[in-house]
Design a protein around this nucleic acid. Structure first.
Lengths: 119, 119
DNA sequence: AAAATTGGCTTGTATAATGCAAGTCAATAT
DNA sequence: ATATTGACTTGCATTATACAAGCCAATTTT
């Protein structure tokens, strides 16, 4: 690489909202980020969330989140190798976005409430 | 209707994030909301945005946004009937969500910038 | 007056994403 | 020895998305 400030190729446009939605714009990705922000780390914890994500979709999203730099894998035991998923700074910095969505959602979906944090 | 506080049926879960993503979780819906917040109102204005949404998807999303109460149609001329789309309070209140996404996106997609407001 | 353009869509078809159930595989617990 | 756990993968049906073209009424241009 000739320089370390890599140019984005702006999949659909140069708008930060469009760029964000290229990586986050579906029904599941932000729910996994929500779980991670609440302290969940493992496959079974994500599967246990009330929205009942399918295993193939979860595996796919975790892969995409990792290659997009939102999470990294951390091995927490050998034999058998088991890993957990940890938010990177890019992922953690989505907290204000999720928080704004929660504030809005609690108004427009009366009766809704956030899940309890893990631990 | 027997009362005016309608109960949500919580498509996937009672989480405000999940409820929000049931209505907003795709690659296009929030871009249309962005356009509306920037002052765009008409079909051709949405089509002119740099992401190049397809006409059938735009028509579908405007229909869904209307039935979900994010926008309402306003006829601005008869012969032929032409209408524009106006954000409801529910739609307008998404501004902080979009703003948080822009703040985040400008950091993680260097070189990205928001479109100019209309008018 | 005829032809082209504008605005707001709809239709058809191909490709991709999502959802559901079941299966795999290594290791640990019973 | 058998069952269970954890992290997936595979197969297949359904649904969503993308792209191109077409439609229709009215207005503008030639």
């Amino acid at each position: 690489m000739t320089n370390n400030i890599t140019r984005q190729d702006f999949e659909r446009s140069f708008c930060p909202v469009a760029c964000a939605l290229d990586e986050l714009g579906d029904k599941w990705t932000l729910l996994i980020i929500r779980d991670l922000l609440l302290g969940k780390k493992r496959y079974q914890e994500f599967l246990a969330s009330p929205e009942r994500i399918a295993t193939n979709i979860l595996a796919d999203r975790l892969k995409k989140l990792e290659s997009a730099g939102f999470v990294r894998q951390q091995i927490y035991q050998q034999k058998p190798v088991r890993c957990q998923y940890i938010l990177t700074q890019k992922g953690k910095d989505l907290r204000p976005v999720l928080q704004a969505l929660v504030t809005w959602g609690k108004i427009y979906y009366p009766g809704s409430r956030v899940l309890d944090a893990v631990e």
